[in-house]
Design a binder for these strands. Structure first.
Lengths: 283, 283
DNA sequence: AAGTTTAATGTAACTTTATTACACGAACGA
DNA sequence: TCGTTCGTGTAATAAAGTTACATTAAACTT
């Protein structure tokens, strides 16, 4: 377990002074590993032995040993930890926090994603007669993004925000069609119903959603990622970002599976777009 | 450059005693990073200052600093680097690469984003009579996402994919309106023209785009982030993700600026959504 | 609610660790 | 051969980390 994450997780288990130390370290781990125990103690406004006790509580032999662990975890794992935005944060502070939280989130998502299932999903997608992407609310922009990506592959594809259009589309689906549903919670009633209809019409249902959710139960294949819930009102839904990256992953897998001739095509599409742009020399 | 490799490579450049130190470290680096300078000196059968000099020769401040560098280099795998997907990658490999590249990208974006400008943008947005979000192609899903976020703030807001609708909307704009344009390259002709129209009608133009691009030149305020260009056809546009996070940042800044009463409202909206969901006990 | 106990924290003495200053001796060149 | 330079070690010094203990705050008991 990553030392920095460990500190973050145990924040509540620490005593008042120890928490001060923890906060200083989380705020600037890179500085911490270069500081002496005296400097760190001063930064956290506690005494040196408190810092030492803090280190021991984290199962290290002492301060130098702790620094070693921290230094290694800064390389290995995420240097970033989910930090909530505070009411009094300035632009610099909240910008950093949001970027870092998002990165921490992606790291978590990556580690909990089952790549065997990714592989199966890619299998199914490459063999699809038609692919549909459906999401509602915040997830609808993820569906749009997926449309944009898969559209370039020149295969029958569709994407609707509208729940009725989604239903109609599913009613018309048949064997060989694949429907991808996107929902963070997997508990949006309307969407779950659409998924059921898709299944009833022999479509293959892939869900980017939470494990064991109602939506997951209606699906043939569930791609889930554990992403911390957005308990904080300031905190934007990083889950959405993780879903987008997952779409990237699926699109990439798709491209790879299709072989080299297919990739030549892609280059042509990309080149086609540049014609609607100013030349680089216009810069 | 990896410290251990560096030692290995420079073996011949060291003096006799220093080489002894180098050999001991190469033989058991894990032990070395946990030893004191005295222990290491004894292991190498040299004096302590020799070890110290050895450390300085490797451009470190001293023994503790050297240990830090060594410790970090001993950790395998560099996580946050942009690694291109390879034709022969399996699902696990490309999944990891894409997630990690995206994180690397976000990190880069974070570091190149000017928070002073973020602050100004938030200023402008909070005072806007109406806010519009426009993007084309891949950026249109970013615009949608922005709509979804800012919509909750209960202010006049709009978002169009259609270039004609965008134009019409801009022609009708007036003093106090803010239009946010989203474009990775900033060179999409159609969008640049819309921006010009917006400006001509006294709207305040914010662009999430590349510095010095034609779009940037038509804008009152440019939020740019340096994100590696997607040279690789496999590699999905991580720039899009960075833009989404930037939207998150702006939305958060907006929320903070509006004060605590406003945030109470947001909680209500959030609660309102849950009614269209299955209860948690349905899980 | 007061007293007792326990946990948390800081002070100061002490130990360990690292660095510096300097001296000695070998290698090299004139 | 002498002087210089470079490498090395010894010893002194400084810095960092740890321990023991005293003090204070918190919690629990009666």
């Amino acid at each position: 377990m990553n030392t920095l994450e460990l500190i973050q997780k145990n924040l509540n288990a620490f005593s008042k002074s120890e928490r001060k130390v923890a906060e200083v370290i989380i705020a600037s781990p890179q500085i911490s590993i270069r500081s002496s125990i005296a400097t760190l103690a001063k930064m956290a406004e506690v005494s040196e032995p408190t810092v030492n006790r803090f280190c021991r509580r984290l199962d290290t032999k002492g301060f130098p040993d702790f620094k070693l662990h921290l230094a290694q975890s800064l390389v290995k794992g995420t240097p970033y930890v989910n930090r909530n935005v505070d009411e009094h944060d300035g632009a610099e502070a909240y910008t950093a926090k949001i970027f870092e939280s998002t990165m921490a989130c992606l790291n978590g998502a990556k580690n909990t994603l089952d790549t065997t299932l990714v592989n199966r999903a890619v299998d199914v997608l490459t063999q699809a007669k038609k692919i549909s992407f459906f999401g509602l609310g915040a997830s609808s922009s993820v569906a749009h993004d997926a449309l944009n990506k898969f559209f370039r592959f020149n295969i029958p594809i569709c994407c609707f925000d509208d729940i009725l259009m989604q239903k109609m589309s599913c009613i018309n689906s048949s064997e060989g069609d694949v429907v991808v549903f996107i929902s963070h919670t997997g508990r949006t009633k309307a969407l779950v119903e659409v998924a059921r209809i898709a299944r009833e019409n022999n479509a293959f249902v892939i869900a980017l959603t939470a494990l064991n959710s109602p939506l997951a139960k209606e699906s043939n294949l569930v791609l889930s990622m554990s992403v911390p819930e957005d308990t904080d009102i300031y905190m934007p839904m990083a889950s959405r970002i993780a879903q987008l990256v997952l779409i990237d992953v699926l699109a990439t897998g798709f491209t790879l599976r299709r072989g080299s001739k297919f990739r030549e095509n892609l280059k042509r599409v990309k080149k086609g777009i540049t014609d609607s742009r100013f030349d680089l020399c216009d810069l």
